[in-house]
């Protein structure tokens, strides 16, 4: 069967495919391209942080505290003389890690529960009531409770943000499963004696992927925001870790004196979230042409 796909590829050619992509995605959805490029830029920055003219983000240097942006410190320094530029670049690592980890975890767990809930009617009632329960707990509150129970760490924060995201993914997947399970090709597979796990993976799961990719971008963006909020109110990652939320929280009291401490991580966070959301919108239009046409 791989021979087929290869032949199909040859028909249009890899180069043709790239041209198609350029014509279909980039030309029709320029916002997708902008969002994608911006996000790739941020991720590269996070990975290459040590090589981007940064210094140690937690090195104290009280002599140079609260300096305005200048040649030696592009984004200025904070009240302990730490370089805000370095802290912002290294902060991208934390925020993007939390965002992507939460997206991957909540999609993986939500997809599993959603598939089971949508296809096995007996479990549906129980699982969905549990999800209702989870949804009724405010996300921030749950995070604060978890962090204060098990101590502040990157992992705790990630888990705390993941849990409230799961029900939304479950609902989305379940809705898709409920509509697809009635399709004749699924019934034909049942009649052919295909086992339940195979039916779910082979015939139903692929239909949930396009909406999930879109959902993942929104989860990622909102997780980054939640992480920043938690850091800001002091319930997030430990204060010595330079996450954007922590940097802004520390800069809060010096806002009138040294607004750059908050301004630069803030604008970076906003740009990153915007990039992810724009990318998500673009992907939604590409993956579901019906919505795109209406707009």
């Amino acid at each position: 069967m791989s021979a087929v796909t290869d032949r199909d590829l040859d028909a249009t050619g890899l180069r043709g495919r790239i041209a198609d992509f350029r014509r279909n995605v980039l030309a029709r959805h320029p916002t997708t391209a902008i969002g994608g490029v911006l996000l790739i830029f941020m991720i590269l920055g996070a990975i290459l942080a040590p090589y981007l003219f940064t210094s140690d983000p937690i090195a104290l240097n009280p002599i140079y505290r609260l300096r305005a942006p200048q040649e030696a410190h592009w984004f200025g320094t904070d009240m302990f003389g730490r370089d805000v530029y370095s802290r912002t670049v290294y902060g991208a690592r934390i925020s993007l890690f939390v965002g992507i980890a939460v997206a991957v975890l909540s999609i993986a767990i939500g997809l599993t529960i959603g598939l089971i809930s949508g296809y096995i009617r007996v479990l549906d009632a129980i699982l969905m009531r549990v999800m209702d329960g989870l949804m009724s707990i405010p996300g921030i509150l749950l995070a604060i409770a978890l962090v204060s129970l098990s101590g502040a760490s990157l992992i705790t924060v990630t888990i705390a943000i993941t849990i409230p995201e799961i029900p939304r993914v479950v609902r989305l997947v379940r809705a898709v499963v409920l509509s697809v399970r009635e399709e004749p090709y699924v019934e034909a597979a049942v009649a052919a004696g295909t086992r339940l796990p195979l039916i779910l993976i082979r015939h139903i799961l692929p239909n949930t992927i396009p909406p999930l990719i879109v959902q993942a971008t929104y989860v990622c963006a909102s997780a980054m925001l939640t992480e920043a909020i938690l850091g800001f109110i002091g319930a997030g990652t430990p204060p010595e870790i330079p996450s954007w939320g922590n940097v802004m929280a520390e800069g809060r009291t010096y806002f009138q004196l040294a607004p750059w401490i908050i301004f630069f991580p803030g604008i970076t966070l906003a740009l990153t979230v915007l990039a992810i959301n724009v990318l998500g919108d673009g992907l939604r239009d590409t993956l579901d042409p019906r919505i795109a046409k209406k707009m």
Binding site: M1, V4, E183, P184, Y185, E187, A188, A189, V190, A191, A192, G193, T194, R202, H203, P206
Partner: peptide, 28 residues
């Protein structure tokens, strides 16, 4: 399950659009 097989009305929804027809035929 082998003993009774069915052909449905709607030819556009009876085959999984993401699988080759060969894969659909050999599945059973």
């Amino acid at each position: 399950r082998r003993l009774v097989q069915i052909v449905f009305q709607d030819p556009y929804r009876s085959l999984n659009p993401r699988r080759t027809v060969g894969a659909s035929i050999v599945e059973g």
